[in-house]
């Protein structure tokens, strides 16, 4: 059976409680049961419910999730055309993503979804067309994007330094984001030893850590189990609710109820 404290800990992390606070709350609960000799379940109740109570007392009384209204356009693309050799993968594609909006890009394999995202990120040049962006961009690739021989904490340090965070702050922020993806113990494991799903969590955490205004996510949930997959969407909505613009490339049509706008790319266009 899983330890009550472990369940409680990951429940707090998943709710986005900062890593340092989680450590303190768990330690305090542990000290209490140590002193009183009472089992945690009877002292604190179920771990999930107690996590809710803790979160409620940590957050100012602002009932429910308030969603920011759709704001200005943060990402605008016009007339994007891209050819690889003689094959035209993107023809005159346009898109607008507002602050507080989630856009899904869907389409069959090879229809240029990832290419479009890279063009928006400014990593690939189109043959014609323009991309306009307000603020900073974050990009999360389908795979790769990590450094094999560095640990998760070192990745956090690397990305954190980009926005001026010191080592300890970057680690704290990174672990907090990782916790929201149900990854309770990033830390000393090198990226090359992580499973595919966990590596993607690292990738997503890195994107979150740089606090971008426009988030471009290229099917970042590959290898996620069901629970993490739902946490991923919670995270996307949390970004949206904070007024970010989020673009998710996906091939799963069942997800389309989770987004605000859908852009379908197809070769028949």
């Amino acid at each position: 059976m899983q330890d009550w404290f472990d369940v409680f800990r990951s429940a707090l992390l998943r709710r986005g409680v900062p890593h340092a606070t989680v450590r303190q709350v768990v330690e305090e609960a542990r000290a209490h049961t140590g002193d009183s000799g009472e089992p945690p379940l009877s002292a604190f109740g179920g771990p999930e419910a107690y996590a809710d109570a803790v979160v409620a007392s940590l957050t100012p009384t602002d009932p429910g999730r308030t969603r920011a209204p759709r704001g200005d356009v943060l990402l605008r693309a016009r007339g994007i055309t891209k050819r690889f050799g003689r094959r035209t993968v993107l023809r005159d594609v346009a898109l607008d993503v507002h602050a507080g909006e989630v856009l899904a890009i869907v389409g069959a394999n090879g229809c240029g979804k990832s290419t479009l995202l890279k063009i928006c990120a400014g990593m690939v040049s189109p043959d014609s067309g323009t991309v306009e962006i307000a603020g900073r961009v974050g990009y999360c690739p389908q795979d790769g994007g990590t450094i094999e021989f560095l640990t998760a904490d070192e990745h956090f340090q690397l990305v954190g330094a980009g926005r001026g965070l010191g080592r300890a702050d970057a680690r704290e922020h990174g672990r907090t984001w990782a916790g929201r993806l149900d990854w309770a113990d990033p830390g000393a494991t090198q990226a090359r030893h992580l499973s595919g799903g966990t590596r993607q969590k690292l990738n997503l955490t890195m994107s979150a850590l740089s606090e971008p205004d426009v988030l471009l996510l290229d099917e970042p949930y590959q290898g996620f189990d069901r629970g993490t997959y739902l946490n991923f969407w919670d995270l996307v909505w949390a970004w949206r609710d904070r007024g970010r613009a989020v673009v998710v490339v996906t091939h799963l049509l069942a997800e389309l109820d989770k987004v605000d706008t859908v852009l379908t790319l197809g070769e028949s266009r």
Binding site: A121, G122, M123, R136, V137, G138, Y139, P141, G144, G145, T146, I147, E148, F149, L158, V159, G162, R163, G164, M206, S207, L209, S210, P212
Partner: peptide
């Protein structure tokens, strides 16, 4: 070689 995959991201995140 190991920098190749991350450098574009690092550029985006402020380097």
């Amino acid at each position: 070689a190991s920098a190749r995959a991350v450098e574009p991201r690092l550029r985006l995140s402020g380097y």
